[in-house]
């Protein structure tokens, strides 16, 4: 596991040495700020619930931009070769990269905590619900990053990785939204697979084990698949 730390450090540095981190953070702040102010004006409620619901779309678009380079770039430039011939396991590499992208995701959403201060200034927000929302936001980030990492691992092209990642995340969001309020096994299955439903519970201030399990197990499954994909060069 020591190599995971080494990889994590390098990947995180790489983000801040390239414009990616700054661009993504800036774009996110523009949109989340816009949604926050608009929803606050509309609802007159001191809550982050509505504005964060919209941020999910932005995150679906920005997270694949964060993750697109993780494996695709190594595959393209060939740096995967010295990396994988160093005494590190495939899991250490994958997990280090995952943690780095997830860390950047958390850095990206961190400035939104300023809104809490603003809400506290203008009214009396429900801190429990806000904390739950952030737990949900962070868990959802892990899932989003692992999906982006998976897509990045199967291609050499970063643009392709980003586009497929965005489409996959939006689909995951939409199937949950579209199934809301419908009955039947198909809808309930889609609702369960989709991220929206699980996420909504958090914004209501409920940290339900089922939702935590959903995010954590889904993320773990995807990381497991990514390790297999990275390994697959050995038998392809």
């Amino acid at each position: 596991m020591t190599s995971t730390g080494t990889i994590f450090q390098r990947e995180l540095n790489a983000y801040f040495l390239s414009p990616i981190a700054y661009v993504v953070i800036a774009v996110f702040m523009v949109f989340s700020g816009y949604f926050f102010s608009v929803m606050l004006g509309l609802t007159q409620e001191t809550t982050l619930r509505y504005s964060l619901a919209y941020t999910q779309f932005i995150l679906s678009i920005l997270t694949p931009v964060i993750t697109m380079r993780l494996m695709a770039e190594e595959n393209k430039t060939g740096t995967i070769e010295p990396l994988m011939t160093a005494p590190v396991t495939d899991f250490e590499v994958v997990f280090g990269k995952f943690l780095a992208a997830w860390a950047l995701y958390n850095v990206m959403i961190a400035p939104t905590t300023f809104y809490i201060a603003f809400l506290a200034w203008v009214g009396n927000p429900d801190y429990g619900a806000i904390i739950a929302s952030y737990i949900g936001l962070i868990l959802m980030g892990g899932l989003f990053v692992s999906i982006g990492l998976l897509v990045s691992a199967v291609t050499k092209n970063q643009i392709v990785a980003a586009v497929i990642g965005i489409v996959a995340l939006l689909i995951l969001l939409v199937i949950g939204l579209a199934s809301a309020g419908n009955e039947g096994w198909l809808y309930s299955t889609l609702k369960y697979i989709g991220t929206y439903d699980h996420w909504e519970t958090f914004t209501k201030g409920i940290v339900d084990t089922r939702d935590v399990v959903y995010y954590v197990s889904f993320t773990a499954l995807l990381l497991f698949i990514v390790v297999r994909i990275v390994e697959s060069r050995r038998w392809r």
Partner: peptide
Amino acid sequence: QIGYLPENVPLYPEMRVREYLLFRAKLKK
């Protein structure tokens, strides 16, 4: 036990030489 120099020497372009060698030294335990 091995030091491997792949064809065309793939390196991380955004890193500094010393920083890269430090990274590799850590990876190689």
